[in-house]
């Protein structure tokens, strides 16, 4: 665990035996470090599942399936799709909130995706290093116990900010059906002060979905790639919680 690791005084960034987390603390390498606590992992997979359901059902709300035959009272296709969308949305909202709460009580990796240390020069240096590595200008990956700085930036923007935006606009749109005396309207109705025509909120919510599609693509690709290329476990870490350093 990170608490058990003593920070080294001098900087020797290229030594593979040294693992650095995104906030720059140097840690003595060991075969595995416990990074993702159980609530973090549970939130990750529940959110991932909800987001997939939300994307599919959301797309089908914008572009419904072909007309079904028979009496209206015999079918509830759009009704069920909307139900699934709203249910998955509420689940996502609850687990997103849980994840935020866990950031207060969990280990320091659990806070990583909620901020970017914009004031730290070292952080931006390492972001640049990662960008150069992805542009094939650097060969050696740096060791990070948590997210690498570029990943932290991507997680904060692509996940935390985008999902928060989707939850807020989603509940605002949901409040339209619930009525202007609903708690959804009281909490999220202010969105319509920004976009008085809810058609715009629909459009933004829709664009947000595509932004998340892009995030998911990059997220999955980089997770697989890092798992192979950086010789650190990434995918299995989100199941076991342990990050293994393979050399």
């Amino acid at each position: 665990m990170i608490d058990a690791v003593a920070p080294a005084s001098d900087a020797r960034p290229d030594l593979a035996a040294i693992a650095a987390d995104a906030s720059g603390e140097r840690a003595v390498g060991r075969p595995s470090v416990y990074v993702y606590e159980a609530p973090v992992r549970i939130c990750h997979w529940v959110n991932a599942f909800s987001i997939v359901v939300l994307m599919v059902t959301g797309y089908l709300i914008g572009t419904p399936l072909p007309t079904v035959a028979g009496e209206a009272s015999d079918n509830f296709v759009v009704g069920y799709i909307r139900f699934a969308h709203f249910a998955a949305g509420q689940v996502l909202a609850v687990f997103f909130l849980t994840r935020i709460l866990w950031a207060f009580v969990g280990n320091h990796h659990s806070r990583q995706i909620f901020y970017i240390p914009v004031h730290r020069k070292q952080f931006w240096k390492e972001v640049l290093h990662e960008i150069r590595r992805y542009a094939f200008l650097e060969r050696e990956p740096k060791m990070h116990v948590g997210h690498n700085p570029l990943a932290q930036t991507a997680m904060f923007t692509g996940f935390t900010l985008f999902v928060a935006f989707m939850i807020v606009t989603g509940f605002a749109l949901y409040s339209e059906g619930q009525g202007i005396d609903s708690w959804q309207d009281k909490l999220f109705g202010w969105v319509f002060a920004i976009w008085p025509n809810s058609q715009d909120v629909h459009t933004w919510h829709h664009l947000g979905m595509w932004a998340l599609v892009v995030f998911v693509m990059v997220h999955i690709y980089t997770a697989i790639r890092e798992d192979i290329m950086s010789r650190q476990s990434i995918i299995s870490s989100m199941i076991s919680g342990e990050r293994q350093f393979r050399d």
């Binding site: 459009t203 829709h206 979905m209 892009v214």
Partner: peptide, 15 residues
């Protein structure tokens, strides 16, 4: 373009 067209182009480009 509508949101889907923009989104599909973006996703395609990233892909």
């Amino acid at each position: 373009k509508n949101a889907d067209q923009i989104g599909m182009v973006a996703a395609g480009a990233v892909g």
